[in-house]
């Protein structure tokens, strides 16, 4: 069987892999690249556990074919922290106890980070609708929504103080 060679970028680093035509990006990440942070909860785009960024937009990696990654920039949960410094969204999830089993958490964090980058001051309703594609069965979403709002608030404050300093 002849595989398709894909040249792409994952979390800022150049990456190459071989895949089949019908293989999903999620499988390429998890199985071929060993990046198991993105999870498969449904395989049909209904749970968001596999959420990754592709060229700056969040997508369900179970609904992207691996060959489509050619020439794209992929960002996964593994690249959210800068080295060992957690992203504010990650830190706020911990501080608010916004995870129980933690299986949906990588998808939520990637999606929440994308939201705050687009909308630095989201309302509760905007957070809830933006995250409607991410299922969590443990928390009832309450602490997740609070963590995202708090992360956004902290990031706004940081930006303001940077501006003041500059």
């Amino acid at each position: 069987m002849s595989k398709i060679a894909v040249t792409t970028s994952i979390n800022g680093d150049p990456a190459e892999f071989l895949c089949d035509a019908g293989e999903t990006l999620l499988d390429a990440l998890r199985v071929t690249m060993g990046l198991t942070g993105a999870k498969e909860g449904c395989g049909s785009g209904d749970c968001g556990a596999c959420t990754v960024m592709m060229d700056g937009e969040m997508v369900c990696s179970c609904l992207v074919l691996a060959p489509e990654a050619e020439g794209k920039s992929i960002a996964t949960i593994e690249g959210v922290a800068e080295g060992s410094v957690l992203h504010p969204v990650q830190r706020k999830f911990l501080e608010h106890g916004a995870l129980q089993c933690g299986f949906c958490t990588p998808g939520f964090i990637v999606a929440a980070k994308a939201l705050i980058e687009k909308n630095p001051d989201p309302s509760e309703s905007e957070i809830r609708y933006w995250l409607a594609g991410n299922l969590c069965r443990c928390t009832g979403y309450d602490k997740i929504v609070r963590a995202v709002a708090d992360a956004a608030a902290e990031m706004r404050q940081d930006q303001n103080s940077q501006r003041t300093a500059a």
């Binding site: 785009g45 968001g48 959420t51 937009e57 969040m58 997508v59 369900c60 609904l63 992207v64 999606a111 933006w130 409607a132 594609g133 991410n134």
Partner: peptide, 9 residues
């Protein structure tokens, strides 16, 4: 349609 993730595609 679907979620933001889905609508991005």
């Amino acid at each position: 349609i679907g979620s933001v993730q889905v609508r991005n595609r």
